[in-house]
Design a protein around this nucleic acid. Structure first.
Length: 400
DNA sequence: AAACCGTGGTA
DNA sequence: TTACCAAGGTT
């Protein structure tokens, strides 16, 4: 291995990486052209999400919302439905808010201006650099996890890449590596190398275009780098969810609700569910699949009925266990038990009162105190409302 | 700075 | 099976 100085190592890296990328780059949907809107949508979808997962979502999204204006004018629930199953749903709402800002402030044209792009909702330092370089070929760094890993190895950097300050330092380095007039290709080359060659677990150094002068490789430390502090494991939460079957005018339907505007799974739809307090965990645990006596079922059912009534004003009548399912978010682990139920006695009384259909519905609302966020839905409504995966799985089970 | 925000692939 | 983690951003 020829010993070279740092400036030579940098020039070599930029030159060889760019040549390599232009030879082997993948043919991806968002690389069809450099339309800033297409680049923008792809970068938002690709945040913390694999290429293979994104591709079908991207195709669907672009055919439904082909322009900034189309996205800006769409009803928000349609945008959320298009994002269903992809996760990090605030990305979808921020993206549409950004599109609306581009229509109002920039006449529907994504501005070729770093500060303006950086000011759009959901666009942070990485995405700003990605849009500026890929769409407009501006010499801005776009430092994501791939880039931090690749540069940590090539330059044998030992800073913890989990720390925000480390990314800032690597941005300066990445900026100094951008070849004249080739910002977009070079930034994508860095990420392509990280995705295909310089992978997290076992990097494939032999086909690497810059292996010869990779400091970590030369030191035999390529698997030790980058240094990254471990994430905390998700905290466990026991939850009980209920499928409430409608009767009368709601025959064949079930009760769902829309989540609040902020926080976890914001504005997504879900089955009614409750956090099980520590002191109730034993009671719920005892009433599972064929594992509880009638007494134990009654105890769990009583707790569920009382809690749901307190929380939502809806009086149910538990009918039995349906399924258990685990769902792991990035920071919470839901251990969910699902029960079947129908409505309690006073709802039936309202239906049996002999009132007209409209009056009956109104009466049911009054008697049940059904709040705005609740709705009776059938299978057909699943095509319109956006549900997170944990509830999609349960509902598909229920309706098949 | 550290917690919050989803999901699925991989070893 | 557990553990890691992927083209991050916001608060």
């Amino acid at each position: 291995m020829e010993a070279i100085n740092n400036e030579e190592a940098k020039a070599y890296f930029s030159r060889e990486l760019l040549i390599w990328y232009r030879r082997i780059k993948r043919d991806l949907p968002w690389r069809m052209n450099q339309d800033p809107y297409r680049v923008w949508v792809s970068e938002i979808m690709l945040q913390q999400t694999r290429v293979d997962t994104v591709i079908p979502y991207y195709e669907r999204f672009m055919s439904k919302f082909p322009t900034v204006r189309a996205l800006a004018e769409a009803p928000e629930p349609e945008v959320l439905k298009c994002w269903e199953g992809l996760g990090y749903y605030s990305r979808a709402r921020n993206l549409q808010a950004g599109a609306r800002e581009v229509v109002e402030r920039y006449d529907g044209v994504v501005p070729d201006d770093k500060a303006s792009v950086a000011g759009l909702k959901g666009v942070g330092p990485y995405t700003t650099g990605a849009i500026m370089s890929i769409a407009f070929n501006r010499p801005e760094p776009a430092v994501d996890g791939n880039v931090m890993r690749v540069l940590s190895r090539y330059f044998c950097l030992e800073e913890d890449i989990a720390k925000p300050a480390t990314r800032v330092g690597i941005e300066k380095l990445a900026a100094s590596l951008i070849p004249e007039g080739a910002a977009g290709d070079f930034n994508q080359a860095l990420m392509e190398l990280g995705a295909l060659v310089c992978t997290p677990k076992s990097p494939s150094c032999l086909p690497c275009p810059v292996m010869e002068h990779c400091a970590a490789r030369i030191a035999g430390r390529e698997t030790e780098l980058p240094i990254k502090t471990k994430a905390k494991p998700p905290r466990p939460e026991k939850r009980v969810s209920v499928i409430v079957a409608g009767t009368g005018v709601n025959e064949g339907k079930i009760l769902v609700r829309q989540r609040p505007e902020t926080g976890l799974l914001a504005q997504m739809w879900e089955l009614p569910h409750l956090l099980v307090p520590k002191e109730q965990e034993q009671v719920v645990e005892a009433a599972g699949e064929g594992s509880g006596s009638s007494t134990e079922y009654a105890a769990a059912g009583e707790w569920l009925t009382r809690s749901l009534e307190t929380d939502t004003g809806i009086l149910i009548r538990p009918r039995g266990w349906f399924m258990d399912t685990d769902h792991i978010f990035s920071h919470i682990h839901w251990k969910m038990r699902v029960y079947l139920a129908d409505l309690g006695p006073h709802a039936e009384m309202a239906e049996a009162s002999g009132a007209s259909l409209a009056a009956e519905t109104a009466a049911a609302y009054e008697v049940d105190g059904l709040r705005d966020e609740y709705r009776w839905i059938g299978p057909k409504d699943m095509e319109t409302l956006a549900f997170p995966n944990v509830f999609l799985r349960i509902l598909r089970d229920y309706w098949t």
